[in-house]
Structures are given as C-alpha cells and as structure tokens.
Design a protein around this nucleic acid. Structure first.
Lengths: 350, 350
DNA sequence: TGACACTGTGAGAGCGCTCTCTTGACACGC
DNA sequence: GCGTGTCAAGAGAGCGCTCTCACAGTGTCA
C-alpha cells in the first residue's frame, strides 16, 4: 500500500522529523496523529502526507510515559493444565477477546502463571501499572487475585462467577440454566431416572451445573436421590470412574447429565463396557459442546456456550471501566443452547 | 482528556522517591534495581530496603523509552479458525512459550489477526518497534510476513517450516519422520495395502506428512498407488469424505495413515459405517496425539509431537537473536513419538 | 475603530528512567 | 608532599511524546 523506503524499526523517525517535513510544529503533528479535531485542513493534509512518506509510527513507550496508559490489557489464565488442553475453551475465548481489542487498538498481553512463584510475579506485574486492566479467567477456589487487583484500583473483569469476596464485574455463562435445559430435555424424552456427574465443587461451574440439575428435578416434582449424583474432576478418567460409581449405586438410571464433554466421553466408554446401549438404555447429555462431542459414538448431545461472545463482552466491560475512576461492578450472564445429537435422541422408552 | 492524578496504576512511586528514602542518588537506585555490580554493600542494602518499603515497581514505559527495548515479544497466530479449535495445539504452544519467557522477565503479546485488515495492522505494529521480536505460528501458503519482518531487522522465529523465500530461524516438528514411523508401524503389523489421508498441500505439514508416507513405502519396496492417497483439509468432515473416496477407489486397503487426529476421527466413523472393523480389517494411525485420540472407538494410535518443547525452543532461538545485530538463521527439528492404541494393535493378519 | 471571543498553532515543560561524564574519596608509589 | 590510579556515587542530559498555556490571526458587535 505505502511506499516506505526507510527501514526504520522504530528507532529513527520521530514526531520532530515529521513536523519538519510537514512544515508544522511537533504539537500539530501530535494532534493529527491522535485524531484531535482542531487542526485545519491543509495542515492536517501536510502532516498525513509526511507520515505516510516517512513511514512514521509513534513510539509507544514515549506516549505511555506521558499518558499513563499502556494501551494493552492483560489476560490472566490461572489454570494448572487440565481444562487448558482438553477443550478449546481458551483459544475460543482469546479469539473473542482479540477480535474486540483489535478494533480498539488495544494489545493483548497473555499471562499464564505456571507456579505459585510465577503467580506472585504476575500480580506484581499487574499492580505495577504496566497494563490498563486485566481479564481474569479460570479462577479456582477463592482466589484472592480479583479482589486484590480491584482494591488497587486496577480495572478487572472476571470470566465466570468470581470468588465470594470479590465485588468485581464479571461475565458468566448461564451454567445453571444450561444444566436445567439438559435435564429437562432428558425428562422430555421420557427418562424416569436421570443421574448426573458433576464437576469439582470448589469451582463455580461445578456448583452451578449441579444446582441446575437439582432444580430441574425439583420443578418436575421428582424426588432427588443421592445415589444418582457423582462428583469428579473435569477429565475423561474422572468421567469413567464416576460412571462406575453410579452404576454400582443406582444401576437403573436411564438418563445421564454430565457436566462436561470430556467426562461424558469417559462415561460413554464405561456405559458401553457395562453393556448399556446409548441412547436406548441410557440417554446422555454433556456440557461445553466441545469438538469431541461430535466424534464420540454415538455423537454426544451437549450444551453449547457462547465462549467467543463471552470474551468480547469481557473486553467491553473492561473498556467501560478504564478511564473512569469509580465504577459499579457489572455482571452479565450469557445464555446457552442445547445441541441435540445421537446420544439423547429418539427411543421414547416410556 | 481526563486529567487523572488518581493513585491508580503505578501509584507514583518513582526512582527519585526511593533515592530520597534510601539517602542516595537516583543513579544508584537505578544501578541496584538493574543488578549492576559497582554499588557498595551498605548503599545497596539501603536501596533494597527502601524499594521494599515503598513497594517500588519500575515504570516500564520510561525504561523502554531509553533502553529501546520493550521486554516483550509478540506471538502471531495467523490461523483463520479450523486448527485453532480442533486440537489443543495453541494452548500447548503458548504454555511452552510462556514458561520459557517467565524466567526471562519477558512479556507475551498475543496477536491474532482475524482479517486481512487486522493482518496489516499487526505488521505495522510489529515493524513499529513495539516488540523486541516475534514468534510466527501457523503460516499458510507463502505468507510474506516472516521475510518482511526479517528484512526490517526484527528478530523472528517461525514455528513450523517457513515459506520458501524466508531465510529465518525456525523450529519444526519432524513431520516427515513421524509419518514414516506411522507407516512403518502399520507395515510391521503385517498390513499390505496402506492408504493415507493427507492434509492441504499448501501447508508445510501437509506436504511433509505425505512425503513421509511415500518414503516409508519406497523404502519397503512397495509400489505407490495413487488410488491409496486422498487429500483434504484438517477437519473431521474432511476425514470422512476422504475416507469415502478411498473406499471407492481402493476398497481393499487394510492400513490407513491419517495426517491428523481430527481427520482420523472422521475416517473411523466412515470405516465403521462401511462395515469395516478397526483394527481387524483396517488398522489406523493418526497424527497429533490430540485428546480426542483417546476418546474414539477404538482409541486411536497417533504420532505425538513435543509442542510445548517447540514453544520453549522458539523462545530460546528468539532470545539469542535479540540484541545481536546480525545473526545466522538457525533451524531446529524436534522428534516425534508413536503412541500405540487400539486402532492399530494386534491382529496380525498375514 | 476598539473590545472581545474564538480558533488554530507553536513553545516548552515535563513524564520516569538510563547512562555517560565528572567528581570525590582513598590508596599507593615516588 | 604530589601525581597517579581505582572505584563508588552524583549530576545532568536526554529518550519521544503529550498537554498546558500563550499568542497570533480572524471574525463579530457595539
């Protein structure tokens, strides 16, 4: 597009040089570059031409130094490993975040602390004013990070329901309603004994999806049965062993809601090994609608979450906060969708 | 616009204040903070105490402005979507990159251009001297980006084999040898007619994995057969339709090497639908060793690649370049491993 | 015509840091 | 005593930018 002859690599072309070439002052160039309105046509034009000709790119450090803005935000992923690799939650989220940032000329700084030591370094970095704000994802237990950052006046938005103490903005997926939808779908298929495999109860997703399961049963007037509930981590193996426990405690269940697709994949295997046919004997619905839902045998019905939208909304909430000195925390809950596949279709048994 | 002298971000602790508290000059504080040796014991101690007491964190922008280093590197992922979400390649890579950067006090800036427009913006950003170097992953076709950046003197390391024209450092996985290993394994199992499903031939991975397949056959003295080769994209659906074509063209194949696990998942489904048993009738090996390899029925044998190590090595090569003015491009090829699972086990047929 | 408002532009003061250069203190040899 | 060398520490000059303030130029109205 442009013919920039000078291979600058940042060092070299400064505002001063552009000003000289354009025949105006440094201040005027600055105004044009930053889109300020009070510059006359011809001056603006001269500056634009000079910028183009010289291939001028503003020096971010110098600008930051005076504006006290870094024009970049942090995305902190505190995830030891598991979920990180099993489904494409993070790529999707980052995609959404990136898309929303791009139109705002903001940069995305990824922080993935892998140890307690690195986590402390990350906090230090965040509180050091290097970033204009932070997106916090995949918090575990009652991580004090969001509250700590908020207390320091750093704009923060949490992805997922934040820990108890933290009064910060967040964007969450409606896990509870998603779980309800899944269970209602199983009941509508005529299933009488619907079991569940829940995720870890130290995570909001784990708690909320189990709560949704229970609500759906309550609302349908079906008595709960502790034997129909098994809890495990979000891995494939967790799903397998939880299913084994379920089969031992309540061999007669004919519907199964699993709080993640990975666990559901494990469940399908164990069900098959136990001689159950899916969906004829047991109808199964997972959660996440991850790619592996389409590869299992039979393909897995699942609850789809708008992850990219979540990323985008997180950025919007964060940008709202940046610049304002005091803001009221906002919360946003995004709806989920049931995706019907073979594992819960047809075969009305009763 | 809004003049804010709020104690937010950074909180205004400067070198000067630390110097005053410690009773030394700004220069001495700077020396201590940057680990320069020529400071006497007591002065050093006083500074350290003052830093601790005040919670001083250096202002990155000010430092950058004079050092002309940003202490951050870019990771550019030019991937329209497909591969991004199907397997955890990127989380793994980012994990490796992040781990290696953390110990070097470097920050990771993620750039994911989603359109041509964003790609140009990204290039502008990179050449603007905002970053000390860049890691380029998932390049397609003959993307001119690496060559362009290198020409501007920006340190660059490519993940995967770079486009023809680009004489830059890169780290790649030994796709060719991985494919050979897979095919040799199938032959060792007694398979006589080994087919393959290859990836897009405008990508280095696609080309190299197909080349490996052919080499293995050549070396075993088996004549190649065009009917045994099908090409498609790296998706599940691509694998399905490629398999259908293979079944039509050469219904007698008894071994199948698929250039990605996602495609292999599609292949398994179509093989099953056609009445073939895996591994009895057709033994299958995939590539990537993604999580879905463990969830298919039967579990999929696959070629594992050291993705996190790739990320770490990329950072090492990049850091080597940063600071040096002229460097010779280096290349690194990482070995793969065959992971044997049910889809290619036992049943020596011949 | 003078007083005043308004607009576009330039001059210049920093932002917080690093780094060179200079100074100061001290030890040593003659 | 003086010159010389060594090492630690301070003074001060920017790095490239934004932003305030002053000022020149133009228009408006009494």
């Amino acid at each position: 597009m442009s013919t920039r002859h000078l291979p600058t690599n940042g060092r070299g072309i400064t505002l001063d040089e552009v000003a000289r070439v354009a025949g105006v002052s440094r201040a005027t160039v600055s105004r044009v570059v930053n889109g300020k309105p009070e510059v006359r046509r011809d001056a603006r034009r001269a500056v634009e031409r000079a910028v183009e000709e010289l291939g001028y790119v503003p020096n971010a450090a110098a600008r930051s130094l005076v504006t006290r803005r870094s024009d970049s935000i942090g995305v902190v992923i505190t995830e030891p490993g598991g979920r990180l690799f099993v489904d494409p939650f993070f790529p999707r989220l980052l995609r959404g975040v990136g898309a929303e940032l791009a139109s705002r000329e903001l940069q995305l700084v990824l922080v993935m602390p892998g140890s307690a030591e690195e986590e402390r370094r990350a906090e230090r970095y965040l509180t050091g004013g290097h970033l204009d704000g932070a997106l916090l994802v995949s918090l575990h237990g009652d991580d004090p990070l969001p509250a700590r950052l908020a207390a320091r006046g750093i704009p923060v938005v949490v992805g997922g329901r934040p820990p108890k103490g933290a009064n910060v903005s967040f964007v969450d997926v409606d896990n509870r309603q998603g779980a309800r939808t899944a269970v209602e779908h199983l009941l509508a298929q005529g299933r009488q004994r619907v079991a569940t495999i829940g995720g870890p109860l130290d995570m909001a997703v784990g708690i909320d999806r189990l709560a949704g399961y229970r609500e759906a049963l309550d609302e349908a007037g079906i008595a709960r049965d502790a034997a129909l509930e098994a809890i495990d981590d979000f891995t494939i193996e967790g799903g397998s062993s939880a299913t084994a426990r379920l089969l031992a405690a309540a061999p007669d269940f004919d519907g199964l809601f699993v709080a993640s697709d990975a666990m559901a994949a494990g469940a399908l295997r164990v069900l098959r090994e136990s001689g159950r046919r899916v969906p004829q004997d047991v109808a199964v619905v997972g959660f996440d609608d991850s790619p592996l839902a389409a590869t299992t045998d039979p393909p897995l019905s699942s609850i789809q979450q708008p992850i990219e939208e979540m990323g985008r909304e997180m950025v919007r909430l964060l940008v709202e906060q940046i610049g304002r000195s005091e803001t009221v925390p906002r919360r946003l809950i995004l709806a989920t969708t049931l995706v019907r596949r073979g594992s819960s279709e047809g075969v009305a048994n009763g």
